[in-house]
Design a binder for these strands. Structure first.
Lengths: 299, 299
DNA sequence: TCTTTTGATAAGGAAAACTTATCGTGTTAC
DNA sequence: GTAACACGATAAGTTTTCCTTATCAAAAGA
């Protein structure tokens, strides 16, 4: 009923379209020109319509018909999909352990992953790992686009990611970061009212406070610094204070201190994100299991 | 380098896996059992690893290896992707879907297109239509700029549009429009001399008379009204008469009448315009064919 | 043990894919 | 205007792939 395309045939089509000539496409395909002609004709027969303008009608160059124009991106997608699967299977076969494509938010990436990953790969010497770090939104996007198999992020409520499966693991609480010599540093916990006479520097994680009682503090904030290194440098220089999730606070810093914020008490759930309705690769599954066992304890 | 899978081959794999047997898969594929065996073996050679447990080792039934388990969802996804594209292209070829970009002169747009279009889209629920109405010059410009795929217009002689293909369909004749109570209304046809003692209101279509015997009438015209609604209102108020192509005359008007002008007998050819040397999108082609069949008869 | 079921294998034929050689039609250069 | 050229179509023949029929071997059920 439905025609069935061959991947090679689609490649021929894409090459003819992009290189604007049967001749060049033939070269690329390591075939003779008539082979490409026949391949394209077969494709046109399957589709039931021409994809290239017949040379009698059009100008000097090989041009797509409107129908062909519509088909081109679809053909390219299918080829890409095929190749990604093909490559994936090859990687999997070559080293028994496979390929782990991982994305994580920076805080976990810096604080926990180095240790976790080194333990994880200790007994899997042939495991290939691709790692990306970015914010939660970007991690989720990578999962959805299947650019990575598994991610570590928080699930931004509000935004609906209903093809994402989330397994919470860590609780990250918001706290105040200030210089050791700041009077606030003596407290063991803080409330938003305590910050009134401080210069608050907001940052990329500040939006976590946006819908809380502390929101007015943000509105009055004079500084916004997105880069973590710059932000830390500013606080170290005593220019002001900021708020950060605990995991984002540099672990061994001696001049700054982290004081939990009790009102509002904002807790960010961080965990494993994966595509719903799709099984993990063996390597990713193993890593997920590993984190559930090790990672939770480490907290 | 990378192996290239055939869709049929992947189907065989999926069927064997899901129906748990080469035999059943063969039935489903309308092939013999050895064909499936060979197909699967070829797949395993390409992958470089077995996808099914060899019967000596494992249990009674055909079982996937872990490697095969990992491949199965990917194979299914690729098949689904392929089929969705295939189906999409079939829909597009049968112009059940796609995009028809159409421009027309107002007269045809009001008098004939509503009926024609509603018939045309009757069984194409997913067909998107963009429609523009404007005068012939503008329609031709839109075609040339490829802002629309197909147009309905007349071909103004004088102006050269040598990359336009014109297929005449309707003949629109110029006539006099006057109030029912105007003495002229009794005639069944008129000549330009008959209009001498009338107040002639010229309009956008009057240029069709410019190079005819009736030109002097236009020169003496006191009124020019471009807007059709205003023009009709003026004539209905008995302020004067005008000339219009028949298709531009409002079909069901009771207070005005249309009397063909015999000298000069100006006939405007209206038809399909499209870009020469460029094939139409399937939807546009289907619409053109449809008009040629239906539209001509409807006149 | 005998029969049944299930997949593997062999050999031959049909279909598909690719090759070489040639042709026809527009394009370019002189 | 015509010769040379570029580009794709077509023809015929060969190689490769795919599928069939026939048969085999192993495991499971009675």
């Amino acid at each position: 009923m439905l025609p069935e395309f061959k991947i090679a045939q689609l490649r021929h089509f894409v090459w003819v379209a992009e290189l604007k000539g049967f001749h060049y496409a033939a070269q690329k395909a390591c075939r003779t020109q008539p082979a490409i002609s026949l391949s394209i004709r077969d494709l046109e027969n399957k589709l039931g319509a021409d994809v290239f303008e017949k040379r009698s009608t059009k100008s000097t160059m090989t041009e797509l018909t409107p129908f062909g124009k519509h088909f081109l991106p679809k053909a390219k997608e299918l080829i890409a999909h095929h190749d990604s699967i093909s490559q994936d299977m090859m990687l999997m076969r070559n080293n028994k352990s496979g390929h782990l494509r991982l994305a994580s938010v920076p805080s976990i990436a810096c604080r926990l992953l180095p240790n976790l990953l080194s333990k994880f790969v200790a007994d899997s010497p042939d495991l290939h790992i691709s790692f990306y770090d970015d914010n939660s939104e970007a991690v989720l996007r990578k999962i959805e686009k299947q650019q990575v198999d598994i991610g570590i992020a928080s699930l931004p409520h509000g935004h609906e990611h209903n093809n994402i499966l989330f397994t919470p693991i860590w609780q990250d609480e918001i706290g105040v970061v200030c210089h050791n010599e700041n009077p606030l540093a003596n407290n063991s916990e803080l409330h938003w009212q305590d910050l009134h006479d401080q210069r608050l520097i907001s940052n990329g994680t500040s939006r976590l406070l946006e819908e809380t009682e502390a929101a007015p503090l943000l509105d009055g904030s004079q500084f916004y610094i997105s880069n973590m290194l710059s932000l830390i440098a500013m606080i170290e220089a005593g220019i002001g204070i900021t708020t950060l999730p605990r995991f984002a606070f540099p672990e061994h810093n001696k001049t700054l201190c982290f004081i939990p914020l009790k009102t509002p008490h904002v807790i960010r759930q961080i965990g494993i994100v994966q595509l719903k309705n799709s099984s993990l690769s063996p390597a990713a599954q193993a890593f997920a299991d590993f984190i559930l066992k090790q990672g939770a304890a480490q907290q």
